[in-house]
């Protein structure tokens, strides 16, 4: 290779490696801030600030969704299967919001540990399948449970 071109090649490699290193250090420093939400375990560890707007995300625990009879207020529990966060929200839930599905809520964590949400989002998972397949999976699961019992 021509020495001048070799020199330019080294410059190109230095640019790519240098900017990657710079990006790595920035991301490393900002690691925690790049998370959109706190998982329930991190809330339980006391990592989430109290009375400041934050987001908490995880699965809506099965059987935890309670709708109040004469208002739009709902209560549910967000879990990461290691810790739980109780949430209270007044408003309309997104269509895809359901028990055993992911959610991300924005709001304030109170002293008592209850999370008062002013926005509830549904987090969709990466599973894509037709309704029949889902139904077949459910019935297979059901059968397996019966066998276990």
């Amino acid at each position: 290779m021509h020495p001048l071109r070799k020199q330019r090649l080294i410059v190109v490699l230095l640019i790519v490696v240098g900017s990657s290193l710079a990006a790595f250090f920035i991301i490393y420093a900002l690691q925690q801030n790049l998370n959109l939400f706190y998982e329930p375990s991190r809330v339980a560890n006391g990592e989430a600030p109290i009375d400041r707007q934050i987001r908490v995300g995880g699965m809506v625990a099965e059987g935890s969704l309670i709708r109040q009879a004469n208002s739009l207020t709902v209560n549910f529990i967000i879990t990461d299967f290691a810790a739980n966060v109780a949430v209270e929200y007044t408003g309309i839930l997104p269509d895809m919001f359901a028990e055993n599905a992911g959610t991300v809520v924005t709001g304030f964590l109170s002293e008592s540990g209850t999370f008062f949400a002013d926005q509830v989002l549904a987090k969709h998972d990466e599973n894509y399948m037709p309704p029949e397949v889902s139904a077949a999976l459910d019935s297979a699961k059901h059968k397996a449970n019966q066998l276990d019992n």
Partner: peptide, 9 residues
């Protein structure tokens, strides 16, 4: 919008 409930976060 229809899945998460918002256009953008």
């Amino acid at each position: 919008k229809p899945t998460w409930g918002t256009y953008w976060v």
